[in-house]
């Protein structure tokens, strides 16, 4: 299994624990990542100019197509942006023409319908590696650990562009991935809430309040950890948690950090030193300290 790894903007600069754990876990499972000269997925530019945003996504698709590689994205917003561009450009000729006008004018290239598949990292684990192989690779079952999963939004919505992957309101894949480690995925009110991350630039107040609701409920519920698969969600639930909750803080782990522990990897290989909310108690509980 060989993929082009799409890092996005946030992860390689501000959430290196996600990148570090994702690479370590992939290696442990025999998944090879190739680094290509990708750039912004287009998502931040969409509110300003959707044609240019699509052109940016299309150029990234071209870069992967030239190498004949499918893309694995760490950030859910990047995944959605690339999946949507691929979907839209294969259906809407008018949009394709407008996008190609920009690509031609700025870069002298055209999007010719090259269509590498684009998978979120968690989806790649679920669909390509598979739960069976993950279960077999577990060396330190995380039994007794009760965690809450947060899907976020762009991992499976808009469902139209994801073409039947996951239920847009009752997804299961992340719960199943968690259960493959031996941990329990608990149901909780507000499981499908939005983290507010996409509003952070426009209104810190609204974004923070959106994140606060889920954090307070999880704190009351007393789960061992909140499990994420997107750097935007981590900024809201991990970084901002230190401003939102004075006490009863909830450790926040990226799924590959959780899986990495189950695979027997060392905490230092999984970038835990960069988690904002302390994870020491959890590491002790699973016997990694």
């Amino acid at each position: 299994m060989r993929y082009a790894l799409f890092l996005g903007c946030t992860t390689p600069a501000r959430q290196m624990n996600y990148e570090q754990s994702s690479r370590a876990v992939a290696e442990a499972l025999g998944v090879e990542f190739i680094d290509l000269p990708f750039g912004c997925c287009g998502f931040p530019l969409e509110p300003l100019d959707r044609v240019r945003a699509l052109a940016m996504a299309a150029q990234n698709l071209r870069i992967a197509a030239e190498e004949g590689l499918d893309i694995v994205a760490l950030c859910s917003a990047c995944a959605e942006s690339l999946v949507k561009a691929r979907w839209l450009l294969s259906r809407e000729e008018g949009v394709l023409r407008r996008v190609n006008r920009v690509l031609k004018g700025e870069l002298g290239v055209e999007y010719g319908g090259e269509t590498p598949r684009v998978l979120h990292y968690a989806r790649m684990l679920h669909e390509e590696v598979g739960l069976e192989r993950i279960r077999e690779a577990v060396e330190r079952p995380l039994e007794g650990l009760r965690v809450a999963v947060h899907y976020g939004c762009h991992y499976m919505r808009p469902s139209e562009v994801y073409e039947g992957f996951e239920d847009p309101e009752r997804p299961r894949s992340l719960d199943e991935l968690v259960e493959a480690t031996g941990a329990e995925s608990v149901d909780y009110p507000g499981k499908m809430e939005c983290c507010g991350g996409a509003l952070l630039a426009m209104s810190e107040r609204i974004a923070r309040e959106m994140a606060a609701g889920k954090l307070r409920r999880l704190s009351d519920l007393g789960v061992d950890a909140l499990i994420l698969i997107c750097p935007f969600c981590a900024i809201m639930y991990d970084r901002y948690q230190t401003l939102i909750l004075e006490e009863g803080r909830v450790p926040v782990l990226y799924y590959p950090q959780l899986l990495g522990l189950a695979l027997g990897l060392k905490p230092e290989e999984l970038g835990f030193d960069l988690n904002a909310v302390s994870v020491e108690g959890l590491l002790e509980k699973v016997g990694a300290r």
Partner: peptide
């Protein structure tokens, strides 16, 4: 118009 969080739930 700038305060939509792009969660896509309404569209679903």
């Amino acid at each position: 118009i700038w305060l939509c969080s792009m969660c896509f739930l309404c569209g679903e």
